[in-house]
Simulated assay, not measured.
Amino acid sequence: MAKTAPSIKPTAAELNLLRVLWQLGPATVKQAHLAMQAERADITYATVLRQMQLMHAKGLLTRDETQRSHVYAPAQSQNALQTNLLKELIHKAFAGSGKALVLAALRGHVTKEERDEIQEFLHGEDQ
């Protein structure tokens, strides 16, 4: 039976930890702490441990307790979570219009190179 996606929206700090875990794959607290220190040298092991425990309780992380050091992993793929957050943003901020979101994003938030890449993508979709 497939696990349903958590309805909890992650905080900014939780998203940072999720990004680390999406990059690392399933990881112990020690592994996640070391990876997070690259971005924030002052983050403590205890802070990462507590955050991972809370995220597990909220359903944002799964935990494998079969080993001495528990291994945590995101409950959702990066793509699934981003899609859910994007749907919510489109609904709340853009009255359900994906077009309005795209136009707002294109206004001043996209480099020339990114515009070219988007154009190439759109042309590929037409075929």
Score class of each variant (00 low, 15 high):
Q51R: 11
I90T: 05
M36H: 04
L18Y: 01
I8N: 07
L106G: 11
A46P: 03
H56L: 00
R107D: 15
K30F: 06
P10M: 07
L54K: 13
K9R: 12
Q127C: 08
K3F: 12
T62H: 06
L54T: 14
F94M: 02
K9A: 06
N16H: 07
D42H: 12
A57M: 11
P74K: 11
M55D: 09
Q23T: 10
Q37Y: 08
E88Y: 07
A75C: 04
Q67S: 15
K87A: 13
R63T: 04
H70C: 12
A105Y: 03
V20T: 13
T11Y: 00
Q127N: 10
P6C: 04
L17I: 04
P74W: 14
K99P: 07
L106R: 12
R19E: 02
Q82S: 10
A41F: 10
L15G: 04
L122Y: 05
A105C: 08
H70V: 14
K30Q: 09
E117T: 10
A80W: 03
Q127E: 15
M55S: 09
A5C: 10
A41D: 15
P74H: 15
V29R: 02
G25N: 04
P26E: 00
V29W: 01
A80D: 13
N16D: 06
A57K: 15
E117R: 12
L15C: 10
Q82P: 01
R19I: 01
T11N: 03
V71M: 07
L24H: 07
L18T: 05
A13R: 09
S7I: 12
S97M: 02
I118F: 05
A93H: 12
P6G: 04
L81Y: 09
Y72T: 09
V110D: 00
